[in-house]
Amino acid sequence: MKISVVIPVYNAENYVLQAVESALQFDEVYEVILVEDQSPDNALLVCQQIAEKYGRVQLYQHPDKKNHGAGPSRNLGIEKSTGDFIAFLDADDYFLPNRFDAEKELFKNPKVDGVYGALGVHYYSEKAKKQYYSLFGDRLTTVYKKYDTYNVFLGQLHMLGSFGLFSIDTLTVRREALAKKMNSLFQPHLRMHEDTEFLLRLSYYLNLYPGIIDQAVAIRGVHENNRITKINSRVINPAISRTLLWKEIKTWSESENDISEEVRLHIDRMYRSFEIAKAPVFKKWGMIIKYLFTDYKSIRSGLYNINFRHSLV
């Protein structure tokens, strides 16, 4: 296997070396692609030092040297990569020694387009643990049982009950399948949840298989400055960011003729529920009354999301 590991880097001077070295431990990792995204800290200097030290590390910035976000940075990394397989890693996370154990066997089957696994959690400080333990705990981020490829798509749409989820850090995809089956990669206009939207479309177009899902193959690093903690501490309004996510999914689903009416209706309802969640109080109850008589299932999640705190990871 020749694996390209794509790492977008923003404000991660204290973590990126660990991420890179966790990828370089594998002989299968052909190259590590760092895309530095105009960090406000010294991440660019650290990345330059890493690239000078390790021959398998390539460093890039956007042509205009400006900040574009995680999605466009991953897109640039994919464009620059040359391996047969592509894996992703956030700069404050890291791989475990079993990261590609399942992939070595599963990718022998040419029908396998991608493999996903389980993600653990590490708190970089006691302050981060105190603030966010209720969100992440010590549990795995994983899909709870092995599903066939079509049901991975339905599971991510929340149509299979307790499905679970998987992280971009645990995904490995066949480069050829990505190029042939995906019309677009990460959506550049989504600054939040761009990985969730990408993984959902990916599971629709590609045949994704479970790898190791009962133990961690990578670790999410939780600290005071990463994006998911900012969302849950309400620096970023979670209802608004989720509304934008489901609006994007809704727009995409309307362009796909093969998506069933049942799936389209479910996506509409998810979008409506977050529209209700983010609406001001005077408008919120008007929307609830409207959907109570026209499509009451649209308000079930919306009612729950009024006091927003859950289902953000």
Rank of each mutant, 00 (worst) to 15 (best):
D138S: 08
R139G: 12
R139D: 14
L140E: 00
T141P: 01
T141Y: 10
V143A: 04
V143G: 01
Y144I: 03
K145W: 13
K146G: 09
Y147L: 06
Y147H: 10
Y147T: 01
D148S: 13
Y150T: 13
Y150R: 14
Y150C: 08
N151K: 14
N151A: 08
N151E: 10
V152P: 03
F153Y: 02
F153V: 05
L154N: 00
L154C: 07
G155T: 00
G155M: 06
L157W: 07
H158F: 06
G161R: 06
F163H: 02
F163P: 07
F163W: 08
G164H: 03
G164S: 05
L165W: 08
L165D: 07
F166H: 14
T170K: 03
T172R: 06
T172Q: 04
T172N: 08
T172V: 09
V173M: 14
V173Y: 03
R175K: 15
E176S: 12
E176L: 04
A177P: 13
A177N: 13
A177L: 05
K180Y: 11
K181P: 06
K181D: 00
N183P: 08
N183M: 10
N183L: 07
F186M: 11
P188I: 06
L190E: 03
L190Q: 08
R191Y: 14
H193W: 04
E194K: 06
E194T: 07
T196A: 12
T196L: 12
E197N: 08
E197A: 12
L199R: 13
L200I: 14
L202I: 02
Y205S: 13
Y205I: 03
L206W: 12
N207E: 14
N207M: 10
L208N: 02
L208V: 14
Y209E: 14
Y209I: 15
Y209Q: 15
P210R: 08
G211I: 07
G211N: 07
G211P: 13
I212R: 04
I213V: 08
Q215G: 10
Q215L: 11
A218D: 03
I219S: 07
R220C: 07
R220I: 02
V222H: 00
V222C: 00
V222K: 04
H223A: 01
H223Y: 09
H223T: 00
E224Y: 10
E224P: 03
N225K: 14
R227F: 08
T229F: 02
T229C: 01
K230F: 04
K230M: 05
K230G: 10
I231A: 00
I231D: 02
N232D: 06
S233W: 05
S233P: 03
V235Y: 09
V235A: 10
V235D: 10
N237P: 03
I240Q: 09
S241L: 04
S241T: 03
T243Y: 09
L244Y: 10
L244K: 09
L244N: 10
L245W: 00
L245I: 02
K247Y: 09
K247E: 12
E248A: 15
I249P: 05
I249D: 01
K250E: 15
K250N: 12
S253I: 10
E254K: 12
E254G: 06
S255W: 08
S255P: 03
E256F: 05
E256H: 11
E256M: 13
E256T: 05
N257T: 14
I259V: 11
S260L: 05
S260Q: 05
S260V: 02
E262C: 04
E262H: 12
